[in-house]
Design a protein around this nucleic acid. Sequence first.
DNA 1: ACCTGAACACCGTTCAAGT
DNA 2: ACCTGAACACCGTTCAAGT
Lengths: 197, 197
Amino acid sequence: MNDRPYHHGSLRTTLLDEAERTLREHGLEALSLRDLARQAGVSHAAPRRHFADRQALLDALAEAGFVRLDDEMRKTIDRTGQDYEARLQAVAAGYVRFATRDAALLELMFGAKNAKDVEPPDTLRAAAERVFTAFGDLIGQGQRAGVLPPGDPERLRLLLLATLQGIAALVTSGRVQPGQVDPLIADAIALFTHRQR
Amino acid sequence: MNDRPYHHGSLRTTLLDEAERTLREHGLEALSLRDLARQAGVSHAAPRRHFADRQALLDALAEAGFVRLDDEMRKTIDRTGQDYEARLQAVAAGYVRFATRDAALLELMFGAKNAKDVEPPDTLRAAAERVFTAFGDLIGQGQRAGVLPPGDPERLRLLLLATLQGIAALVTSGRVQPGQVDPLIADAIALFTHRQR
DNA sequence: ACCTGAACACCGTTCAAGT
DNA sequence: ACCTGAACACCGTTCAAGT
């Protein structure tokens, strides 16, 4: 512990990893720059070199979150076969799982509280964009497959995103049990595909 | 300012009102007990008599939020006529308006971050319950009117709630413009009522 | 019953100085 | 280029004491 060299070497990565863990296990309130520095074995002012301020760290976390979510989504799409409804169900379930496992991170990603007057950096916006594009592609596939109704794909995309986001919020707040998630998603998809149940 | 009596008289209410305003205008981060005390013209330790700690104030805010939301919902229901779809649209729009106007408050109400290990007080749970019951009633009306599909009303209620919560989240995060809200809600309701568009 | 004032242990942020 | 240490202005929380 004390034989650490003067230069940490990978402080930025260490801070981000540790921050993501703290966020997941103890929430945003518990995330302190001084504490992260302590865990990394550097002085409290050292993080300053890598993150201008606390918000910069949070933005970096959000961006990494979008990158990971995008990754997971694309992997899920690759893994599923040609059955569109099964694919949609899998992607939706994956999204909700991410959102509930990393609820505090998702809040950061959707910036409810930081969006007061500060603009998110371009790299964060771009990472978010990629996720939304992936959702758009998924909608397009469904429409071409005739499983989703025709019409403005943008509206369908927003509606699907809203539904998943909402289901995740209900789980996070304890109003829906994790076991209810998959049937709830199936219900939601049934609405979209106009299959009566 | 300085001619204030030793006993404030209505400190609790003053603190809550001021806190709600701060929450709306500057977000949760900006909410400090010491600052509230300062604005109320009392010492920083005075709020302690009314709120055991910061979390107790946040819980009280959340509870007041549920009470107000419940109030608004019931008023909206009373105001609308017999056209069920119009009523549903009005209630949904009202919910989303509340959620976007008081986004930080809604986060408190749905306790994403405080739900780490602390249990919310009974009064808060009860206030939340009343809102969810109102939603359940609304679903029941729709099913009896034959506008909503039959089947488990609980699932429909969760799905509707999730959709509205999700739409609000998209607005709050700036991914949906306020002007897009009403059409988006209309789209969502159309899905529920199985009207093709 | 309600509020004050001092005290304690934390923060984020800044900046001159060290390696 | 990267990190330290002291300093500053804030927090929430506690508690003896005042009215």
